[in-house]
Computed example of a mutant assay.
Amino acid sequence: VLFAVRWARTRRGIARGVLESLRAGGSVSVPVGSVLTQVNLKKHAGYRLGDSADLLLARV
């Protein structure tokens, strides 16, 4: 399952609830991944999370 979350559009509570319901599936183990789309790179880089957003911003 690939779960796409849109920056500044998908509410955290909804995203969290969907992921929790996928995890609560029980005995069947389904791989779950997520992707954050349409990210505001300038704002994200300002959070200083230590990820590669600053490298992506340099390319823009």
Results as ranks from 00 to 15, higher is better:
residue 58 A to C: 01
residue 12 R to W: 04
residue 53 A to Q: 02
residue 5 V to T: 08
residue 60 V to N: 15
residue 34 S to V: 10
residue 15 A to D: 10
residue 13 G to H: 06
residue 1 V to G: 13
residue 35 V to M: 02
residue 50 G to A: 01
residue 14 I to F: 06
residue 35 V to G: 12
residue 20 E to T: 15
residue 24 A to D: 14
residue 18 V to G: 14
residue 19 L to K: 12
residue 42 K to H: 09
residue 40 N to Y: 09
residue 6 R to W: 00
residue 60 V to R: 11
residue 7 W to Y: 09
residue 7 W to Q: 00
residue 13 G to F: 03
residue 50 G to W: 00
residue 48 R to M: 01
residue 22 L to R: 05
residue 34 S to P: 14
residue 18 V to R: 01
residue 42 K to V: 05
residue 9 R to F: 00
residue 7 W to P: 15
residue 10 T to P: 14
residue 60 V to W: 07
residue 46 G to E: 06
residue 15 A to H: 09
residue 4 A to W: 07
residue 39 V to I: 11
residue 7 W to V: 12
residue 30 V to Q: 08
residue 41 L to K: 11
residue 5 V to G: 12
residue 14 I to G: 14
residue 33 G to C: 05
residue 2 L to I: 04
residue 19 L to Y: 08
residue 50 G to R: 05
residue 5 V to M: 08
residue 24 A to V: 08
residue 13 G to Y: 10
residue 50 G to Q: 04
residue 40 N to F: 03
residue 54 D to Q: 15
residue 47 Y to E: 08
residue 42 K to A: 12
residue 29 S to E: 10
residue 46 G to D: 05
residue 55 L to W: 06
residue 40 N to Q: 12
residue 32 V to I: 01
residue 1 V to Q: 02
residue 24 A to E: 11
residue 37 T to H: 00
residue 9 R to Y: 09
residue 1 V to S: 08
residue 57 L to M: 12
residue 39 V to T: 00
residue 6 R to G: 05
residue 56 L to T: 07
residue 13 G to S: 07
residue 5 V to A: 11
residue 39 V to K: 11
residue 17 G to Q: 09
residue 19 L to M: 06
residue 25 G to E: 04
residue 60 V to G: 13
residue 57 L to W: 04
residue 2 L to K: 09
residue 30 V to F: 01
residue 59 R to D: 10
residue 24 A to H: 12
residue 52 S to C: 11
residue 24 A to I: 02
residue 41 L to I: 03
residue 48 R to H: 13
residue 42 K to C: 09
residue 7 W to H: 13
residue 11 R to T: 06
residue 3 F to W: 02
